[in-house]
Structure formats: C-alpha cells, structure tokens
Amino acid sequence: MLALPLPAEDISYRILPFQLHKNIGLTLLIIIVVMVAMRLITNREQAAQIKTKREKLALIDYWAIYVLIGTACLTGYLSSSYSGWETVFWWLVDFPAWAEESDELNILFSDLHKWSCWALLLVAALHISAALYHGFRNDDQIKKMFDPK
C-alpha cells in the first residue's frame, strides 16, 4: 500500500487500500475495547494468582499488546482525521469530520502511528518467542491458552 502512487485526480490506487486499512483498524479498536472489558471482568482472580517473574512478564506482554494495538488504531484514525480524508466505516457509516485539516497534526499522529506499529511488531515477536518456547518445552502451556478449562 505504501508503495502505491500518491493520489491525484486520475490516480486513485490508494483510496481502496486506505479505506480498507482504516476499516480494519477501527474494527480492531472496537474488538480490543470489548476484549479488555471482558478480561477486566472475568480475569481478576487469575491475575491475583500470578507469582513468578515469568508470569508477570507474560502479563506485561499481554497488556502491552492490547495498549499498542489500541494506540496504533487510535493514532491512525486521528492522523486520517487531520489529513482531510473522509472515513466511511465499511462503506456504510459516514464518520463525521470532527477535525479541521492540519498538516502538522497529521504528521504528528502519523509518526505516532508508525512508531506504535513498530513497537507492536517488537512485542508480537516477544509473544511469538514465548509461544515457541512453551511449544519446544512441550509443557502444555499453549494448550491451556487455547482451552483454559
């Protein structure tokens, strides 16, 4: 998407990928909010049982993923809002243009979006490494993640 030509009157390659990108991001943001709420409601007792360093690290990683996904989605939306581009959620719902076009704020939120995505990749790599670690140890930790009962 980033390698597609800049938009112009006759060149509109970026429109569909960017709209799709924004739609997926906004949907993810809604899912993350619901997941965080669910986790806060259901997992309070489980969090209290965490004792070892590794368990604490896993919890930090877990929350870092939630926070970074939320930040990436929110800053992306803010950047788009200040760019002057319209947001039509899944081509159905027109989001109101609540912000005036501002190049400075667009660049600021665009940078925050970019860096939160890089940080998210780093945390995701840690998460994958942890999954592989438990997979190679064959200690049934991953099995518990899929089926906590």
Binding site: A3, L4, P5, L6, P7, A8, E9, D10, I11, Y13, D103, N106, I107, S110
Partner: peptide, 27 residues
C-alpha cells in the same frame, strides 16, 4: 499519465521527487 508529486505531499510522505515518480513506474 505522469505522477502528481506535490511538494507538500512529498514532505508529508517523506519522499523524494524521484521516489514519487518511481511509485508510478512500479504500477
């Protein structure tokens, strides 16, 4: 058609003029 590479857009996207033109070449 030629790529429309406005100076403000190039600054915003952190692109050089040549890169902007090559994006169209890529397509």
């Amino acid at each position: 058609l030629h790529a429309d590479c406005r100076a403000d857009e190039l600054e915003e996207e952190d692109l050089s003029l040549q890169e902007c033109q090559l994006m169209l070449a890529n397509v």
